[in-house]
Design a binder for these strands. Sequence first.
DNA 1: CAGGATTATTTTACGAGTGAAACACTTGCT
DNA 2: AGCAAGTGTTTCACTCGTAAAATAATCCTG
Lengths: 180, 180
Amino acid sequence: MSERAPEQPGREDIVTGIMRQWQQVHPGLDLEPIGVIGRINRCAALLQQAADAQLRPQQLTRAEFDLLGTLRRSGRPLTAGELTRETFASGAAVTKRLRRLEQHDLVERRIDERDRRVAHLTLTDAGRELADHTLPDQLNREQALLSGLPPEHREQLAERLAELLLLLEGSIGQISRAAN
Amino acid sequence: MSERAPEQPGREDIVTGIMRQWQQVHPGLDLEPIGVIGRINRCAALLQQAADAQLRPQQLTRAEFDLLGTLRRSGRPLTAGELTRETFASGAAVTKRLRRLEQHDLVERRIDERDRRVAHLTLTDAGRELADHTLPDQLNREQALLSGLPPEHREQLAERLAELLLLLEGSIGQISRAAN
DNA sequence: CAGGATTATTTTACGAGTGAAACACTTGCT
DNA sequence: AGCAAGTGTTTCACTCGTAAAATAATCCTG
């Protein structure tokens, strides 16, 4: 399917070529941000595509699975608002996703008695089982993807990304008040 | 919701906390993929949010700007199909975006005379000006975000991401026929 | 040189996400 | 107590993206 040119198996990633094109069109422009940010975006797109494909048979969206995972790892009921903040999503989106998850009997809703505005969401047994089955599966396939990288490079990548993310949370995250 | 310690300004990124939660719930599970992939996804989300905000005043979507940029850096007319592959998007999405860009007189369409199925798209003068004004702007703000990282860390990050992307293009990209 | 296979692009029908307004409560002020 | 202000969640109207079907042209191949 790819016998293009006398090209080596995998010499360059897509972004390298993109940067070369820009350099020819705008010589002298500092393209470093593309080398970092463009690659992050492409990697994210590919990885999300892979995750979506893996969740499709379970009839779950990545965003829905994110909710299940957030409930699972928190180990206690969360309110809709907490889920909104934890999953970095809009309130409207969370409402819709919760409706679907409730319809499929994966999460349950309990109205707070003190303050009847707030809803506490919990995983049902089915929801917990689904999460507990799906997460390790997901991690295995992801680890398989990453295994093509030498372990010390994976580790370095994680460290550098942590630095960057911390930085971005500081400079961009202000509005979204990511309440940790 | 988080009684963690006399919290320092920015000691940990969000993902570190998420990993700690998982470790408590599923001890023994290998969470390394979260450290890499989870962080890539979060970084991408934040960076895209920043880019969207910056493009809003220009009345452009990030995806639309991606089309303009692709045409600009290619330096020649591209067909709709080429744009589809280059921008990593679905055909339908490209059709819609091109319609909008044509309506705003940013790109022009010319039907190929040999094969009247194919459309060649070009930037108009306005489109080129917009791209030439917006890209450096974008790069400057992105460089400003990254400038919080030591230069050698930025470089290392770009290198490691290039390795990863190359790997992912090999293992995931098969379907999407990225004909380069 | 006719008619099916192939290719390039658009249309259609629909699902998912969004911001703003609405709704449903509780809190605090007087 | 009464009511304005505040808070948590849902609804509404809309945009954007997608997969699959439709359209439109070209390429074979006998």
